[in-house]
Structures are given as structure tokens and as C-alpha cells.
Nucleic acid binder design. Structure first.
Lengths: 165, 165
DNA sequence: CCTTGACCTCGACCATAGTCGAGGTTCTAG
DNA sequence: CTAGAACCTCGACTATGGTCGAGGTCAAGG
């Protein structure tokens, strides 16, 4: 195991991996996608500043809440000088994650009530059923709360337009 | 538009697409993955029995609840002779979907409470945080209700084992 | 100095749920 | 009989979040 630069306390990728519990390949992947940064040694090896550990923690925690890497990256980039989130940053951002979570829970509950109304009904007749025809969606809650918004674009790129193209 | 076989009332793929609202490519995809079946004309074109319409409705409705195609296929294959679900089948199976939904909602609520407890805490210190360390997961609820089961296999194929392999 | 473990890049691959296009065939109306 | 719409297969591509291996380099201890 390589020893740590005594002056600046930089971490090699294996060390960061071990301390964060995130695989080496995932760390490289995060860098590729602009979520973390690394300095390089003369020999082109990555060296991480210690605050990257916090950054990785932030990323994993946000992921556990179901936030996509793209959204996490945006949240990080929105910070002044793209700094690693402070505790205050975390409080603010995680409150936003909480709203996302609320929205997703609400969407599932709405869906459940639809399903309940549908369990005994003529659903499979393919007409007159909310579950069949509603415009709301479940999909990996992309950007924002576009939940049961019937006015949104149709989620099934339907046969007619498919053929038209 | 081709006319329907008067004797058996079979549907061409375009007709099934139009009536079900599911794209032609998706219908072929479903067939490829064993969710629906088609007879063939002498010229190798698909012809669908009318009950496939019900089957497709079942598939789409189940998908809207967030069930994966793999799980839907299993549910369909579990029916006697892999018949198209009757109304009674739908009642039974959709009750199962409902439990899945309940489990997913419970998982999200659990997560939310963890997040709440974590918003002001030292989360980002990477220690002593439930959100950081818990074994529960969100991921596209695979097979069954493996929700916040700390005994389950670690979801982060961690650095150590990655290196070991 | 040399070995060995840790590191590097790049490209291919996993699952999920399809879409799109190329190149060729079939079906049906006129 | 023929035009054209609808159909066929197959392979490549989309996005997400990575993993794995090949082939090659770096760094540090003995």
C-alpha cells in the first residue's frame, strides 16, 4: 500500500476506494462524468484531495435516496466554485432531495389508489380504465415532479407516429 | 389496411398496435421476450388471436404499476397453460402487484425518515450515518420484497472484493 | 536494480425497455 | 398484374450505472 503524501495528505485511488467503500471503477466513472476531480502525479496516477471523501459520501447518500448521477452532478456544480458540499450545503440540498422523495411517494400512492379501483374492474377490457389510459408515469423520476400530469407528452410513442416517422 | 380474417378474426401487428396503443416495435419486443405469441401466415407475417389484446392490456397495466417485464412474464407463465389472464386471474395477480407497491412505498417512507434524521446530522463525515451504512436499497425492486434487509448481500460490490476478483 | 502490486487507458459487456434504419418480402386494392 | 403500404429480420443505438479484461506503466520495498 502506497504511503500518503505527508505534505498534502493526498489519497491514491485504491485508498479512496477503501475508505469510501466505493469501487475503483466507480470512482473512475464518477470522474469521467464530472462528479469528482483528481490531481495527477508526474506518472499520471490520480491523487485525491481529502475533501473528495466527503464528496463521494455526498454522492452515495444522494444515490441511496434515488437521485440520478446527473442530478447529483448538477447539485454539485451549482455550488460556488463547485466546492465540496459543506454541512450547510447538505442541509439545503437534502431538503430538496426530500421533496423529490415526497413526490415519488405521492406518485406511488396515487398509483396504488388507481390500482385499488381497478382490481375488481373491467381493466383488461382496455377501455374506461384509469390505469390503462392515464397520462401519469412512474419512470425513473427524471427531472422535477412531472407526476400524473396528463398534459405531459404521451409516454407511449404511439403506433401512428411511429409509422409516420 | 389489411382486412381481418373473417373466420378467426386474427389481427395483423399494425392492427394490434393501433388497438392497444403499443408500438409495433414494442410488440415484436414482447414476443421476443416471451410475453405474447403470434401465429404466422404462409408468408411469415404475424397474426394475433384476439385474446392477445387482453394480454397486452395486462402487460401495460402491470408495467404502469412498475412491474418489470421479467416479473410480468413470470406471472403470465404461471397461469395454467400460459393462458391469457381472465378477470379472476387479474384480481389475484393485481393484488400481488399491490403488495409490491406497498412494499415500495414503505421502503421510500423508511428512506425518508432516515433522510430526515440525517439532514442536520454529520452524514457527510462518512461514519455513524444510517443513510451511509444501511443495507437497504431502492434499486428497481427486483425480485420480491428484499427491502431494508440488512442481511442481504451488499449492494455495493465493494472495493475489496472487486480487487480480489 | 528489480520485482510486484497498484495504477493507467480503452473498449467491450451486463441489464432494462425499447427505437430506428437497412435491405428485402408479402399482401391487397385497383 | 402491379404499385405501394405493411410486413419481415437483423444489427446498431438510446440512457443509466457501472464491471471486466487486455495490454501497458508507475512506484516503492528488498
Amino acid at each position: 500500500m502506497p504511503s500518503v503524501d505527508p505534505a498534502r495528505n493526498l489519497l491514491a485511488i485504491g485508498q479512496l476506494s477503501e475508505r469510501s467503500g466505493v469501487s475503483v471503477s466507480a470512482l473512475r466513472f464518477y470522474e469521467q462524468h464530472g462528479l469528482i476531480v483528481a490531481e495527477r502525479t508526474a506518472g499520471n496516477q490520480r491523487r485525491y484531495r481529502r475533501d473528495v471523501l466527503r464528496r463521494v459520501a455526498f454522492i452515495r447518500t444522494s444515490q441511496r435516496v434515488g437521485i440520478t448521477l446527473a442530478a447529483i452532478r448538477e447539485a454539485l456544480n451549482a455550488l460556488p466554485e463547485s466546492r465540496t458540499p459543506t454541512r450547510a450545503d447538505w442541509v439545503r440540498i437534502s431538503a430538496g432531495w426530500r421533496s423529490e422523495l415526497d413526490a415519488r411517494i405521492a406518485a406511488l400512492e396515487h398509483l396504488r389508489s388507481e390500482l385499488d379501483g381497478c382490481i375488481g374492474c373491467g381493466c383488461l377490457s382496455l377501455t374506461n380504465c384509469e390505469l390503462q389510459n392515464a397520462g401519469d408515469r412512474l419512470g425513473a423520476g427524471g427531472d422535477g415532479a412531472v407526476l400524473w400530469d396528463a398534459a405531459a407528452a404521451p409516454r407511449i410513442p404511439d403506433a401512428a407516429s411511429a409509422r409516420a416517422r
